[in-house]
Amino acid sequence: METSAPGFTKVRGMDILARNNVTVQGPEGAQPMVFAHGFGCDQSMWRHVAPDFADRYRVVTFDFVGGGGSDPAAYDADKYASLDGYRQDVLDVVRALDLRDVVLVGHSVAAMVGAMATIAEPERFASLVMVGPSARYIDDEGYVGGFAREDIDELLESLASNYLGWSAAMAPAIVGNPDRPELGHELTEAFCRMDPDVARRFAEATFLSDNRDDLPRVPVPSLVLQCREDVIAPMEVGEYVAEQVPDSTFVVLEATGHCPQLSAPELTSDAIGAWLEGRVAA
């Protein structure tokens, strides 16, 4: 279980840690900060942000079962048919490392999964950071989610058309990056790997979910980070989340796209750091 800085060190010795491909860095005994990735990718999403906190937090990243470097044998189609299965992954990781006073950072659907985890075991969590959250993707009466039911069906079809896009075999085919030779080694890795059937079920669990009732029950101080232009979780969706979570702070990042931790990692780190250190009033 012992790990050492610098860099992400693979933690071994416990089933859950191997199952969820858990990595730990940062000083032992420091406050834990757990990063959870959303649909469509894996913990590599946090590669430019998580290390920014490793000087003062015990930083934990992991892959949800079914994605990245998680154990494929652990995938259970019934368990992961709803977000409850993913919430259990978060709780399993937190328990396996026996973490308390956790800062939980969730991106996209993992923001809601994180909210569910804090509700389930409030004693483990100190605060919640939601990056690009949406409580419900499909429009409803009196609620704007940004998508119609048909759009989600189309997404599921689109996943089927991109069958190959998920397979691990794709990434190594991408060769040469004369602009950034230092990325050479990383190019041999496969990012965001996921079995196409798993991806489809995760997409259904994510985009058909409705977590609006969970929001008022979030028991910890929360930060909602909203990108200025996000086609997945538009501004009004983020505002809704911030309004519904009792003790929340709403911060708009001057970033486009759904993944500010990649498109604007410094802004993202700064915003999270500032909030954690109390530089932004709640």
Partner: peptide
């Protein structure tokens, strides 16, 4: 298309 947009943005 909206579906393609989600896929593009998330993956």
């Amino acid at each position: 298309t909206p579906g393609g947009r989600i896929f593009h943005e998330t993956h």
